[in-house]
């Protein structure tokens, strides 16, 4: 939990101590994916690999569903989840699209469109 003084930010999940504790097993599995051999082992036998890292039932369900928001709710940190996403062939636009409920094309367009706001034009001018 964020400290009591901090108002929640809509659509934003602070990776704090509670999340880090809750997500430890899932993030540990994702951290192991820095190794190509471990990525191969996951692809070969996902269930066995997940057993090895003792994921919680919530984390198992989130991974099985390939659902990023569920993984975050289960304590996943996006920097570590990105390593799992890499195995699944998903980039950060794919993740963004999934989390916002947009198509990937619409999400990419939303990113591009942010260059067209008055504030962006001013910042680009310098």
């Amino acid at each position: 939990m964020a400290s009591a003084a901090n108002k929640p930010i809509p659509g934003t999940h602070i990776f704090d101590g509670a999340a880090a504790q809750k997500g430890y097993a899932l993030n540990a599995m994702c951290y192991s994916f820095n190794s190509a051999a471990n990525r191969d082992a996951f692809v070969r036998d996902e269930a066995a690999y997940i057993d090895k890292f003792q994921l919680t039932p919530e984390q198992r369900a989130a991974v099985a569903a390939r659902n990023v928001l569920q993984m975050i709710a289960a304590g996943g940190n996006v920097y570590f989840l990105a390593k799992l996403a890499g195995i699944l062939g998903l980039n950060v636009q794919d993740l963004g699209a999934q989390q916002t409920g947009m198509s990937v094309d619409a999400f990419k367009q939303m990113l591009l469109d942010q260059a067209k706001t008055p504030a962006a034009r001013e910042a680009i001018r310098g």
Partner: peptide
């Protein structure tokens, strides 16, 4: 991450 993914603030 999160439902606000894609947020930027020029």
């Amino acid at each position: 991450d999160g439902e606000r993914a894609g947020f930027m603030n020029a």
